[in-house]
């Protein structure tokens, strides 16, 4: 648990979902056209991460892991199906909540709200969590308890939110730039993200 702060900060900066692992790229590139919508999506992704990752942590720890349910039984190979089922169910729930309480956000997110279910950042968070449970406790990346899992999810979500809002800000300004025609739109966006990723590399090695 004392590792939680470290995990939180690392997952925002040096282990950023976008810049270090390229997770959640599809919606990241497609929705980052303006700051307001992208902030909405960022919050939704953060929320889904915070809910699904600890649930999947408990699932992994008490049902799927080696010797968790029955002595001598390792159900890890079922993890893909169970994790994605949990994620799909929770996304359905979030979709219903957003539709009820914020119809304008619901309209602007459009197809990308149900697609959070297949956002790699969510599934990737759960799979990284599964890997990190196996690490020795001294490793700064190890997830040793429920609190760690929660803060890892929270940090990853904030990192993703920050990345998409930054890119949206840049893209709004870039509208007025003179970019070569074949490079316009997605080409230049990729290169921008590449340069941002390079800038974020200076955070590597950060720890508390």
């Amino acid at each position: 648990m004392d590792n939680a702060l470290n995990l939180f900060v690392r997952s925002i900066f040096s282990d950023n979902m976008i810049f270090a692992y390229f997770l959640g790229m599809c919606s990241y590139l497609a929705v980052s056209k303006n700051v307001k919508t992208s902030a909405g999506l960022g919050v939704a992704v953060t929320f889904v991460l915070i809910v699904t990752l600890p649930v999947n942590y408990l699932l992994q720890k008490y049902v799927l892991g080696p010797n968790a349910l029955v002595e001598g039984l390792d159900l890890s190979y079922l993890s893909f199906i169970l994790f994605i089922a949990v994620i799909a169910a929770i996304v359905q729930l979030v979709e219903m909540i957003v539709e009820k309480f914020s119809p304008s956000l619901y309209a602007s997110l459009g197809i990308f709200l149900p697609l959070i279910a297949v956002n790699c950042a969510i599934m990737g968070g759960s799979l990284f969590m599964q890997q990190r449970i196996g690490l020795p406790e001294t490793d700064p990346k190890a997830i040793t308890g429920f609190g760690d899992a929660f803060f890892y999810a929270f940090g990853s979500g904030i990192g993703w939110l920050m990345a998409i809002v930054c890119l949206a800000g840049i893209r709004e300004k870039m509208e007025y730039n003179d970019v070569p025609k074949p490079l316009q739109g997605l080409g230049i966006t990729f290169i921008t993200v590449g340069l941002m990723a390079m800038a974020f590399m200076c955070f590597s090695g950060l720890s508390f």
Binding site: F19, F22, F190, I191, V193, L195, A197, M198, M201
Partner: peptide, 8 residues
Amino acid sequence: LMPAMALI
């Protein structure tokens, strides 16, 4: 070999 280069 850096991740950023893949994007570019």
